[in-house]
Design a protein around this nucleic acid. Sequence first.
DNA 1: TAAGTCTGTCGAAGCGCTTCGACACGGTGG
DNA 2: CCACCGTGTCGAAGCGCTTCGACAGACTTA
Lengths: 338, 338
Amino acid sequence: MVTLAEVARHAGVSASTVSYVLSGKRSISAATRERVESSVRKLGYHPNAGARALASSRSNIIALMVPLRTDMYVPVMMEIAMAVATAARTHGYDILLLTGEEGAEAVRRIEGSALADAMIVMDVELDDERLPLLRAANRPAVLIGLPSETAGLNCVDLDFAAAGAVCAEHLAGLGHREIAVIGEAAAVYERHTGFAERTLTGLRERSAELGLRLLHRPCEGSYASVSATLSRVFDERPGTTAFVVQNEAATDPLLALLRQSGRAVPEDVSVVAVCPEQVAAHASVPLTSVAVPAQEMGRRAVEQVIAKIEGRGSDEEVVLLAPELTVRESAAQAPAET
Amino acid sequence: MVTLAEVARHAGVSASTVSYVLSGKRSISAATRERVESSVRKLGYHPNAGARALASSRSNIIALMVPLRTDMYVPVMMEIAMAVATAARTHGYDILLLTGEEGAEAVRRIEGSALADAMIVMDVELDDERLPLLRAANRPAVLIGLPSETAGLNCVDLDFAAAGAVCAEHLAGLGHREIAVIGEAAAVYERHTGFAERTLTGLRERSAELGLRLLHRPCEGSYASVSATLSRVFDERPGTTAFVVQNEAATDPLLALLRQSGRAVPEDVSVVAVCPEQVAAHASVPLTSVAVPAQEMGRRAVEQVIAKIEGRGSDEEVVLLAPELTVRESAAQAPAET
DNA sequence: TAAGTCTGTCGAAGCGCTTCGACACGGTGG
DNA sequence: CCACCGTGTCGAAGCGCTTCGACAGACTTA
């Protein structure tokens, strides 16, 4: 392995000079800088990460806690994770992948060992066990998600309440009056992951203002579950003319089962989804939807956390991204009442 | 931050003794060990990762290169990644997440900086640009996937050729004679990611032996693409009674479109898939399938790479997992010829 | 009883880097 | 002409750990 000392010798300068060339923390004459840089290139020098971390107490690593699901791996999680990794690299940081499995212990471990300079935490519950530790930690942290108490925390998330409101408005504008919400699995609500509840709140409030009738049903992503849910919905509310789906896995079954039951989308029933663009665009009927902006969420989280590492940026900053509804083919004017 | 020295002082021993207690590399009397361990617990000591890496030239980090897809995030990739992370933790290792984006440069960077002790590389192409570097690197590497030349490499993968063969056998056993293969997107074949081609090879060879007629068509995961592909298949081979699908995204559209075109699964046409269990089990018709054992692939890769880090385990070891076909509801006896 | 062997512990060196203070040197201003 | 300043470079200390060799003491073995 090539070391700093070898580069220094090769360039005919001292080790500290090489270090300053690399970090730019002191001014170096153009001539010297070029000599050093050429030596670095010629020798193929890469600074030793451990030594650098030890000396500077900076690892240039950001820990990312992603949820561990044994049931289903939700593509949007992966999209966010990859966006985080990509964004981090452009700022010279690497990502340490932690599974949710370790829970709060992981926070302690990372902080104690100085393995990472900061943490990004996905899939936060409203009252997450990790929050007290993150608040107390002397390392920056950013949540992707929104717990109930945000004091002393940095968060990035889609404004799901606004997303719910936008869906209600869009359907109201098309003349729909009875709307059913096909939600995430019941387990998601029980875990109190905020996003599902916030969407619902947004939907409920705006619906009330607009005079819509709303029926909400949690639902698994399986055909059986969607089928059962649909039957119950039409039993209870035969006048239902529109659906809002917030469940990546349920969108396809929903469209398929509506078609099978003789209801055309969007002629007989309209569907609006809250899901990633990919899912919406590739559905059997391209879905009018509010996108979950995974890329941007990842990018913003990284930028925020790096700002904090570098001493810029404030603690306690909540970024809620404005929802954007994209009109595709699954929602249309409500059928005339007969 | 608590340091080794503080623990040593607290326990009334020297720093090296604490170190040996922690690493177990020299024998320590039970009394001393307990005193040290209790101090460690009392003070909440976590060894500094940078210092440890510097002194021991071991970071206890394994780098994982996952493909960066801008189009679609394939769940199976995430499942493998999470399995790798989980398995690594049980052995005391952390995972550094690298996107494929950096390509071969990432290999150089990791090696040069000693950031990770080893690498696990996913999504390898038959003649991947990273292979020469991995072979030459003085760090262990394990591929999840199978390139065309495996000399000097460690690989873990499903035996896709055998998987193809198993599919052919199963359908032949049910009396099918004309089979269509709905494959991955053409781009996948063009990139020469081996798994798709190997499945096809297995299918072709076994089909030839069993006297089956085989038609292969690459296919995107969209409804439009599957629909077009289906029409062409039935145009060319009206006698087709069975499909083999290897494309996570295409399974749902395939089932939906077959149904729409008036062909019942499995009464009129049979479908066998090569895909993760989740996808197969949750399809609208539960799919008879050969599973892609993501969990096991991740686990095996980690075990193999750690064995190499620790000096056990051989270079050049190719583990091909035997395929297992699970019978569900999508494949049945071929309809009697009319 | 002397020599040899373990066992458990310690001190010190050193891993490769960053960073602080020192300082040489040429240019300015009084 | 001297004191002064800014610029560019260097030497040395030290980050927190691992690991090697040394060694004291208890225990065998001849």
